[in-house]
Design a protein around this nucleic acid. Structure first.
Lengths: 132, 132
DNA sequence: CTAGAACCTGACGTTGACGTCAAGGGCAAG
DNA sequence: CTTGCCCTTGACGTCAACGTCAGGTTCTAG
């Protein structure tokens, strides 16, 4: 497969694939003319890389994780990285859920256009002009 | 409160607070000498701003949301923004959960150091040399 | 064989939320 | 009044994951 096919198949740009290769995340053969040649599995590979990027992992971490994904075995350092990233993701999920709930209650109060909009999104003193 | 107190109280840098003010997210009085003077509520305000930033909202969106948070009422545009961001966050949570599960199974396979490491993180053809 | 699409390398530009440095001014203690 | 810490504005630096442009090469359809 040429780079454009892989890019379209994975929903990214050719530039992104060259960037991944530059970062050591994706390898490619070369044709006699010097153009990149990928196996079919590259599409799924790129989707996995994108999934990691979406999860907030930097390319350096992905670079260390991918061999472990392939081989199924990992050094204790990689193991620590895995657990650390999992914990970070878990915390991020909690933060996002809290913010989503806040937005939901904001939506709820903003949805009923009554003049008695209950201004109680948060418990702290949200009344700016309550000084004695 | 001076800027340093607010910064320490909210766990951010003074530079961040000046940036928030520059972006129209945070206002401040000035002392006779020109220094910023914040009410106590600014700490909680900054925490809210941080929460939105952590959730991936850009400053422009936060700028549009904060008046709604204060007043409890919002234009239909703000309402659309709210629901759009909530949906985006919901999708982000789903992505993160999927990646965390993938990392979990990767951790599981990497944890038992038997030579029969089950290489089945994903269903697609992860065997690179299986061509007929 | 030729036109055009796709590809190559190399290099610079973009964006957002700040960090950092420079040069100076304000403020409470002693 | 001075010491020292905190503050001010202004401007430039950072970092990551690409976007974009330039100038040239390769592949493929006709």
């Amino acid at each position: 497969m040429r780079i454009g096919e892989v890019a379209r198949g994975a929903g990214v740009s050719p530039r992104a694939l060259r960037y991944y290769e530059e970062q050591g995340l994706l390898s490619s053969e070369r044709t006699s003319g010097g153009q990149r040649d990928y196996p079919e599995s590259a599409v799924e590979r790129v989707r996995l890389i994108q999934q990691f990027f979406t999860a907030g992992l930097p390319s350096r971490a992905i670079q260390r994780l991918l061999p472990c994904v392939d081989s199924g075995e990992g050094s204790p350092e990689v193991f620590d990285l895995l657990t650390a990233e999992r914990d970070r993701i878990t915390a991020a999920i909690a933060d996002l859920a809290a913010t989503r709930d806040a937005l939901d209650s904001l939506i709820a109060t903003a949805h009923h256009p009554t003049p008695e909009h209950c201004p109680g999104l948060r418990e702290p003193a949200w009344a700016p002009y309550e000084s004695p």
